[in-house]
Design a protein around this nucleic acid. Structure first.
Lengths: 196, 196
DNA sequence: TAGTTTACTTTACATTGTGTAAAGTTGACA
DNA sequence: TGTCAACTTTACACAATGTAAAGTAAACTA
């Protein structure tokens, strides 16, 4: 039936992820993906009308494969706000390397003025923000939120702190290990968001 | 003599800066710049062989106009490492809004794989890093550097903290005022880089 | 004042990558 | 046997950067 279609579609998605993980994000053109998938360029457009569509689908594909929902869920069961914050940062931080390639490509398209890419990115960030908000809420409920910060400010700061670009800068550009990154981000979050 | 040449050249540079400050960075094409400068597109290429060249020249132009060297110099005369760090952050933070348009455009070109843009950006960041390094050095000399951090880590963190992208996210995307941004960055720097 | 140089304009074209369009092929299934 | 779906092939439209070259007009030069 449509098994052939599904097969080709997910083959394209997998190839896209692989290419974006390894190669430089900008060097992954529709034709590169087609060639690497062993399929014609038009076949790619048959499944994904635009490059943004393909990247969004690839991101969703990774979300599923790596079970992002489950990862972030873990933090929800933490006993205190402080532990919740720590668990949330750990979960997200360890997910970044997994989506990095695709997410970066989406981010670059957004920066180039692609409205579809922007919408998709903003949507992802909204979801992440929910997690940040929940962690900050838990902190505030315990009375452990730094008194110098309003809740909104704390959420903004946490989002910025754990941004993909910061991860990229520290690990990719400055050679930090993932472990070093996680520990340091947790320390900074504690020192800046939690009251003494 | 060459006054006509110089005149056109700086007219193009000024126009470029204006367009990048106001309009969305990606919507500023060579033809837009030419039109807004009241000059043919080829005249732009006559003065600046590539778009990257033009952006680099525009950045240098702004550096001069806003006297970035003098701004950063101020922090050098601070009495203590802690004050020096504070002054450095203030100086840089208040310069970001001035270069933002041009710098962002350069950054986007870098992300698109333009090697010339990358080289220019990296060069700018090297200069900024010198400032960070000096501030951290001063801190370490006073014995005020957070003992959990090696000097290199502290410099990496400071660079990341005050990055253009973080400024963009907090002020442009999240509506923070410049003042709010500066105060918060100083607080975070103090809490994460300085020993208690 | 005739000739040259300089700064620019005009027109045209090459290149790269995205996306569209449409006719042709091939295998499965009815 | 015929139809349909998934895919291929070929061709083109479009935007943006960058190149090439001939033309113009004012300024400077001998």
């Amino acid at each position: 039936m449509s098994s052939g279609k599904i097969d080709t579609r997910s083959k394209i998605l997998k190839t896209t992820c692989t290419l974006l993980e390894t190669g430089g994000s900008s060097a992954v053109r529709m034709s590169d993906i087609a060639k690497a998938s062993g399929v014609s360029r038009q076949a790619v457009y048959l499944h994904f009308p635009t490059r943004a569509d393909l990247l969004v689908a690839a991101a969703r594909y990774i979300d599923q494969e790596a079970n992002i929902d489950l990862r972030l869920e873990a933090s929800r069961s933490a006993e205190s706000g402080i532990y919740r914050l720590e668990a949330f940062i750990t979960a997200w931080a360890n997910y970044i390397p997994v989506v990095y390639g695709v997410a970066k490509a989406l981010l670059v398209m957004k920066d180039n003025g692609d409205t579809e890419a922007k919408a998709a990115w903003d949507d992802r960030m909204r979801a992440l923000r929910h997690g940040c908000q929940a962690a900050i809420n838990a902190l505030a409920k315990d009375g452990d939120l730094n008194s110098e910060l309003k809740e909104k400010e704390a959420v903004d700061l946490l989002m910025t702190l754990i941004s993909l670009r910061n991860w990229e800068e520290l690990t990719k550009d400055n050679g930090w290990s993932q472990k070093q990154y996680v520990i340091t981000m947790q320390r900074i979050a504690r020192q800046t968001l939690v009251s003494d």
